[in-house]
């Protein structure tokens, strides 16, 4: 009698419990929040009930503003991520490969890195105006650092045995870079990309709070000025949900891509 691939009986039960916890906790929080808010225990001017937030969401969806703001933000994030990603990749490779370049850059890059994206917004508006350039560059800076650092570390952590073998086999530098160093850096690089995209999405809110005309960050600041906390919450939920989706999708992509590692 051969072995079968049937899963044990408690596997499905375990899965059900896992998904129940995954979704059940947020659902329970929302239900409790609605119950407490409807009973008058929350100041609705500060914390609107989930039903109010849902109504605002529906209204924005119906009048088309939600998708207008959402896709404006997505566009900026993708543009900023592309710029920050390429810059982070190039700089990370240079820093990883060339010690002298790393020595020369460490103080400058180390001083700039701790500056939060929010802190750069007024400066970039001063330098680049209130158009798209300043916003995309703020987002690019947010995406740059995780990609740069992870690329650099990925290259530095190349297996020394593999480098030794390549040296013994008298392979040229280009071969070593292409066949050993870069493939070895892929796991960390992909992690950097995942973190960079998350950062870019988070940065869009800061970038859009000043001088924007569209976008989820603009939607939140517009709602703030008009004392519309329910719309602010809609914006915040969108940011949170999209942030989770980005993370989950990229994590799965990362797992598939580096399965061989």
């Amino acid at each position: 009698m051969g072995r079968t691939n049937r899963k044990p009986p408690n596997y499905f039960t375990g899965q059900i419990i896992n998904y129940a916890l995954l979704l059940g906790v947020p659902v329970m929080i929302v239900v409790l929040w609605q119950f407490i808010g409807a009973a008058g225990y929350l100041n609705s001017s500060i914390v609107p009930t989930p039903s109010k937030v849902a109504n605002s969401f529906a209204a924005y969806l119906k009048n088309g503003l939600l998708h207008e703001h959402f896709f404006a933000s997505i566009g900026r994030v993708l543009s900023g991520f592309a710029i920050g990603g390429v810059a982070g990749l190039i700089l990370g490779v240079l820093l990883g490969l060339f010690r002298k370049f790393e020595r020369a850059s460490v103080v400058v890059l180390g001083s700039i890195r701790p500056i939060p994206m929010v802190g750069l917004v007024p400066l970039f508006i001063l330098w680049f105006g209130i158009g798209e350039k300043s916003k995309i560059l703020v987002i690019a800076i947010g995406a740059l650092w995780p990609i740069l650092l992870n690329t650099e570390n990925g290259i530095r952590n190349t297996d020394p045995k593999q480098l030794e073998v390549a040296k013994i086999l008298k392979k040229n530098q280009f071969f070593i870079l292409r066949k050993i160093i870069l493939p070895g850096a892929v796991p960390l690089l992909v992690t950097g990309i995942r973190l960079g995209l998350s950062n870019a999405w988070r940065g869009v809110v800061a970038a859009e709070m000043i001088g924007a005309t569209r976008g989820v960050g603009y939607m939140i600041s517009y709602a703030r000025e008009l004392a519309q906390p329910s719309v602010m919450f809609v914006g915040l939920f969108i940011i949170g949900i999209v942030g989770i989706l980005i993370d989950v999708l990229l994590f799965r992509f990362q797992k598939r891509l580096i399965r061989w590692a």
């Binding site: 929080i29 409790l32 929040w33 407490i36 008058g40 225990y41 929350l42 100041n43 500060i46 914390v47």
Partner: peptide, 11 residues
């Protein structure tokens, strides 16, 4: 969450 909600309450 319940504790946070009660802390936010100003009613």
């Amino acid at each position: 969450f319940a504790a946070m909600a009660l802390a936010c309450s100003q009613t």
